[in-house]
Design a protein around this nucleic acid. Structure first.
Lengths: 148, 148
DNA sequence: CTATTCTTGACTAATTTGGTCAAGTTATAA
DNA sequence: TTATAACTTGACCAAATTAGTCAAGAATAG
């Protein structure tokens, strides 16, 4: 469990995609301007998002990125998992779940408990929800821009 | 909003305190062994936790750290705020909240929305809850150790 | 009462990790 | 074939983490 600036950037970028999906592919240059991050860094993030099947990339002029699934079917936790992936790739060849539980200090089980709670919560928030404010409207500035 | 390994260490360390508070002060050396972090780093963390009034230090033999408030009155978010404090200290002399909202790209407002949600959730989880599993018992290994 | 040991408290420096960016490469539409 | 924008790789910089030193308070042994 981890929620750093990297995760934040990924989430806000995905929010941007969710808001603009009507107007076709969104270019990284646009997001770069919007969030004042470098395109290079966005490329790194989207490489991982693409690898995890959250977005699709369209090359060439008029290209950009789109959500692969509808925004209501992508959770905030999905995005974090895609971007943070630190342990998935690393091979855990032999050790079983139980063996790991033994090895790791029991104090870490405390964290796992809590971590699971938080992740469950973040899994309950969809990208569609995140983009929508409490009273059901899109957030102010973003709405204006997407309607322009 | 930020939840990195630093925050995790602080939280698990506080959990340890919550579990052992019956046996009096907990020494940093103990926690260091338990979680395999350096004592030096723990000292840094606890310096901040103490500054924010979450723990009290008792010197001398038999000394250590205790929770200042009962575990049920300390939220997980409290701990994160204490340890992460990056912006509190930095002076925001003139700019009002509204002015900041103008300046920051509107896409960041999306994040703030979500960030508030997450923090609200973490504020709803007390240290006491975090240490207790769903069926109301203390977590396995930790319970055994605290009873030994 | 003095010495010794345990532990916080306040530093500083070294190291490792992760975040950030720059430049070059390939695919695709016009 | 030319411009656009996704891909790929490598390097740099800042923050997290470890390591270590020194002082001072507090209980205990002698």
């Amino acid at each position: 469990m981890k929620l750093s600036t990297k995760g934040r950037y990924a989430i806000t970028a995905m929010m941007e995609l969710a808001l603009r999906h009507k107007q076709g592919p969104v270019t990284l240059a646009d997001i770069s301007v919007e969030q004042s991050i470098s395109v290079s860094y966005l490329e790194q993030l989207f490489a991982q998002l693409r690898k995890h099947g959250l977005v699709t990339g369209l090359r060439g002029p008029g290209g950009g990125y789109c959500l692969r699934r509808p925004a209501s079917e992508i959770s905030v936790a999905d995005i974090l998992r895609a971007v943070d992936e630190s342990l998935e790739a690393v091979a855990h060849p032999v050790s079983t779940e139980a063996a790991q539980a033994e090895q790791r200090g029991e104090s870490l089980m405390l964290w796992d408990q809590l971590s699971q709670q938080i992740y469950a919560y973040l899994d309950s928030i969809s990208l569609a929800q995140a983009v929508t404010s409490k009273d059901g409207k899109l957030v102010a500035g973003a709405l204006q821009r997407s309607a322009a």
